[in-house]
Write a protein that binds this DNA or RNA. Structure first.
Lengths: 151, 151
DNA sequence: CAGTTGTTTCAGTCGAGACTGAAACAACTG
DNA sequence: CAGTTGTTTCAGTCTCGACTGAAACAACTG
C-alpha cells in the first residue's frame, strides 16, 4: 500500500510543507521538513534516525531540531520500554499552538502600540497611524477570542 | 513640543517595533526600523535621507528597503511639486494588509493539507494529524471572513 | 567485560543575504 | 553651462546561524 512509488510523492509533499514553513514562518528548512514528515509518516511515531535518512539530514541536525520542536511544544518524545530508540510524534494540536502563538504575539504588539500613543501625545495626525495599526491587530485577536475553535 | 528629549524615547520605541518585526515576521532590522519610524514620525511623510540619518542606516539600504516596502504595499511614495525629494508615508491600512496576507497564506496551507489527505489515503490514523492541522488553519481564516473589520 | 545501537556534543564550514561606500545618475537651479 | 541636492546602482564585506562529520557519550545485550 504505502509502496515505494508513494514515497517520492510523500517526500514532495513534505517539501511543500517545509517550503511553506520556511517562507511564512522563517523556520529553518530542516525544521520544516521534520514537521512535514511527522504530519504524514506512518506510523505517526518516528525515530530521529529514520527521519534523518528520509529527509537526508545529519543526525546532529536532527538532535538540535527535535530539541527545539519539543521545547516549543510542537513535538512529543515517545519512549518505548525495551527499545533504546527515542521516537517523536507531532502533537495533535501542534498547528493550533502555532496559530495561537501568533495571535498572542499580536497582543504584544498592541501593548507597544499603546505606548506609542502615549509618546505621540495628543497630536491627532500622529496618533492616527498607530491607532489604525492597533485596531487591526486587536481586531483579529478579539474575534479569535470570541469564536473559540470547536474542539 | 516634539523636543529633542522626546527623540530618544521615540527611537527606543521604533526599536521595539523593529524588534517585533524581526522576531515575529523575520523582516530585516532596517526594514523594521523604517516601519516603526514611519508610524510615529512627525509629519507622517518622511524623506529617505531623513529616515537614513534618524535610524543610522546607509542611503543605499534605504533605497532597497523602501522599494521593497512600496512593492508589497505597506508604504507609499509621495512626491511634492517643486521638491526633488521623494517622501514616504506608511499606508493607513499597512498593518491590516500584513494581517490579511498572513490569513491568506493559511488558506494556501489548507490546499497543501488537502493534497496531503489524498496522499495519505483512507488510513484513518494517518489522515487524522493532517485533518487536525487543516481544521485549525481554516478556523481562523473562516472567522476572519465572517467578522470583517469595522472599517 | 566487549559489542552493538542509538544519541549528543562540539568545533568548524559554508552560504545567504543584510548592509555599506563610492561612483554613477537624475533632476533641478542660477 | 557649472553647481547643488537628492537618488540609485553595484561590487564587495561581513555577520549570522543552519548544517555537518567525527568523536564522545549512554544504554543496553550477550
Amino acid at each position: 500500500m504505502s509502496s515505494e512509488d508513494n514515497q517520492d510523492e510523500v517526500l514532495r509533499w513534505v517539501e511543500r510543507v517545509a517550503t511553506f514553513c520556511v517562507e511564512e514562518w522563517a523556520l529553518p528548512p530542516i525544521t520544516g521538513r521534520i514537521l512535514g514528515l511527522l504530519m504524514i509518516c506512518d506510523p505517526p511515531e518516528c525515530s530521529a534516525g529514520r527521519i534523518a535518512e528520509t529527509i537526508r539530514a545529519s543526525r546532529a541536525s536532527l538532535t538540535s531540531n527535535m530539541r527545539f520542536l519539543a521545547a516549543i511544544g510542537l513535538v512529543r518524545k515517545v519512549r518505548v520500554p525495551g527499545d533504546r530508540t527515542t521516537y517523536y510524534r507531532i502533537e495533535d494540536d501542534a498547528w493550533h499552538k502555532v496559530i495561537q502563538r501568533k495571535l498572542d504575539s499580536l497582543g504584544a504588539f498592541g501593548d507597544i502600540a499603546d505606548e506609542g500613543l502615549k509618546l505621540a501625545g495628543g497630536n491627532r495626525a500622529r496618533t492616527e497611524r498607530i491607532r489604525a495599526a492597533r485596531q487591526s491587530l486587536t481586531w483579529l485577536r478579539d474575534i479569535a477570542a470570541r469564536n473559540p475553535p470547536n474542539t
